[in-house]
Amino acid sequence: MPPALRSSRTTLALTGALLLLLVAAPAAFGGIFTFDEQGSQNGKDISFLYNITLIIGLVIFLVVEGAIIYCLVKYRARRGGPDAEQIRGNTPLEIGWTVGAAVILVGLTVLTFLYLGDITDPPASSANGYQAAEGVQFATRDQPKPPGNGALEIDVNGQQYMWRFDYPGSLKGEAERLYSFYEMVVPTNTTVTLNITASDVIHSWWIPTLGGKADATPGYTNETWFKIEKPGIYKGQCAELCGENHADMLARVRAVPPDEFRAWAAKQGADIKAAQVGLGLQRLQGVGSE
């Protein structure tokens, strides 16, 4: 039946065109085939690893789809056409593509190892960053301590359904006690290391433009870091199903210049203190009136 034959050939050609479009598209629509622009070096490195692997993957994709479409079009059974060749295998060819696949993967492994250090190990803060208190003990398990001084350490705690951020001892006298919910304020050009845990179920800390995610697991401390150059707001949300309001467990990181950070820390610290004093007074009055 020639019409059916023609129509499925058209569909094959259309499929081919669609695949071509897919390859040409990354240049035209960045952010659809690749990550959004990253605000921290570890995110940029991860993004680079992804892009390289994606390009290798696209080549393999084209070869495989091309071969399938070529065979289907070229070797369709036709009246009076050649009989199928009874080929049962070809050892050199089979060894060839086995080794070929292995070589590509070894290449990817080497590439990953080249970038791994830059992704996992926090760098030093820049000179124009916030200078945190010296001699801070970093609670690191697997992630090495950032070199030099001046890195800021923040404890992240996931709770149904919000994030709490505690700034332990690395502040330089701006506040006695500092914490916040939902919004994490950090200084720019400063390495920020995060100790991530949870106090109820498992959550996952993720700001898509600040490097990868890290699960917040009760009983464990997970670690990651970022170092932001451009001031701004970086949004994210919990990435591990944690209950009904999982979708509403939002977080954001506000990066501000070090001076502004100092001012914020002082004000937030003072507010917390005032609130605590107020609470203490309330309690005292409550006791008195009873």
Partner: peptide, 25 residues
């Protein structure tokens, strides 16, 4: 990564099965 190798072998062998066949649609 390693598991991608035998999986790749399978895909290539399927394509090679179609190659020079007389494919009935």
């Amino acid at each position: 990564f390693a598991i991608a190798v035998p999986t790749g072998i399978k895909i290539f062998n399927w394509i090679a099965t179609l190659w020079r066949g007389s494919i009935v649609f």
